[in-house]
Simulated scan of single mutants.
Amino acid sequence: MATAEGYLRRLTRRLTEDPEQQDVEELSDEAANTGAQKAIDCRRGQEVTMVGTLRCVETNAKGCAGGVRAELFDGTDAVMLVWLGQRRIAGIESGRTLRVHGRLGKLENGTKAIYNPHYEIQK
């Protein structure tokens, strides 16, 4: 009986909860299930492994210094991925899920960033 009540409670929550909040929870759970670190817990100078979805990608944009920038969101915080000297990277596009590894730094504006990260496309 407890299983049926739990299912009904989860179903009701899914139907009434904000879709954006559902996405955030799913991303956060997915990252946790892969053993990746949460972006919100990571600090400058740490070597990190994260899993998240690319929300936006800029290629050769003004201020991009001839590289590619992509915002990775894992459900807890966003991290800017920066590939210096690249014009385009196959597979790096909005909506893709990546597993990235590198040393966490910061951009001039204080945003968390990983320069030239190692990455694997997940989906």
Results as ranks from 00 to 15, higher is better:
residue 1 M to C: 05
residue 3 T to M: 11
residue 4 A to Q: 14
residue 4 A to W: 12
residue 4 A to T: 13
residue 5 E to C: 05
residue 6 G to M: 07
residue 7 Y to S: 02
residue 7 Y to A: 07
residue 9 R to P: 00
residue 9 R to E: 06
residue 10 R to V: 04
residue 12 T to H: 09
residue 12 T to A: 10
residue 13 R to N: 03
residue 15 L to N: 04
residue 15 L to R: 11
residue 16 T to G: 03
residue 18 D to E: 13
residue 21 Q to E: 15
residue 21 Q to K: 13
residue 22 Q to S: 08
residue 23 D to Y: 02
residue 24 V to E: 12
residue 24 V to R: 10
residue 25 E to L: 14
residue 25 E to V: 09
residue 25 E to K: 12
residue 26 E to W: 11
residue 27 L to D: 10
residue 28 S to C: 11
residue 28 S to K: 14
residue 28 S to V: 00
residue 29 D to A: 13
residue 29 D to P: 01
residue 30 E to F: 15
residue 31 A to K: 01
residue 32 A to M: 04
residue 33 N to H: 07
residue 34 T to M: 07
residue 36 A to W: 08
residue 36 A to S: 15
residue 39 A to D: 01
residue 39 A to Q: 05
residue 40 I to N: 04
residue 42 C to F: 00
residue 42 C to Y: 08
residue 44 R to T: 10
residue 45 G to S: 08
residue 46 Q to H: 11
residue 46 Q to R: 05
residue 49 T to L: 05
residue 49 T to V: 14
residue 51 V to L: 12
residue 51 V to R: 02
residue 52 G to I: 14
residue 52 G to W: 13
residue 53 T to G: 02
residue 53 T to R: 15
residue 54 L to F: 00
residue 56 C to G: 01
residue 56 C to Y: 02
residue 58 E to Y: 15
residue 58 E to C: 06
residue 58 E to H: 14
residue 59 T to L: 02
residue 60 N to V: 02
residue 62 K to P: 03
residue 62 K to T: 09
residue 63 G to C: 06
residue 64 C to K: 07
residue 65 A to D: 13
residue 67 G to V: 13
residue 67 G to W: 12
residue 68 V to W: 10
residue 68 V to A: 06
residue 68 V to G: 06
residue 68 V to Y: 12
residue 69 R to E: 01
residue 70 A to Y: 01
residue 70 A to N: 04
residue 71 E to K: 09
residue 71 E to S: 08
residue 72 L to P: 02
residue 74 D to M: 09
residue 74 D to I: 13
residue 77 D to Q: 09
residue 78 A to F: 07
residue 80 M to C: 11
residue 82 V to F: 12
residue 83 W to D: 04
residue 83 W to Y: 14
residue 84 L to H: 15
residue 84 L to K: 12
residue 86 Q to P: 01
residue 86 Q to R: 11
residue 86 Q to M: 10
residue 87 R to N: 14
residue 87 R to L: 00
residue 88 R to C: 07
residue 90 A to K: 15
residue 91 G to F: 11
residue 92 I to W: 04
residue 92 I to C: 05
residue 92 I to N: 03
residue 93 E to K: 15
residue 93 E to W: 07
residue 93 E to L: 07
residue 94 S to F: 00
residue 95 G to S: 05
residue 95 G to W: 05
residue 96 R to E: 11
residue 97 T to E: 08
residue 98 L to N: 04
residue 99 R to Q: 12
residue 100 V to R: 06
residue 101 H to T: 15
residue 102 G to P: 08
residue 103 R to E: 12
residue 104 L to P: 02
residue 107 L to V: 00
residue 107 L to Y: 03
residue 110 G to P: 02
residue 110 G to H: 07
residue 110 G to L: 09
residue 111 T to W: 06
residue 114 I to H: 01
residue 114 I to K: 04
residue 114 I to S: 03
residue 115 Y to T: 12
residue 116 N to L: 10
residue 117 P to S: 04
residue 120 E to K: 09
residue 121 I to W: 09
residue 121 I to T: 10
residue 121 I to C: 04
residue 122 Q to T: 08
residue 123 K to S: 14
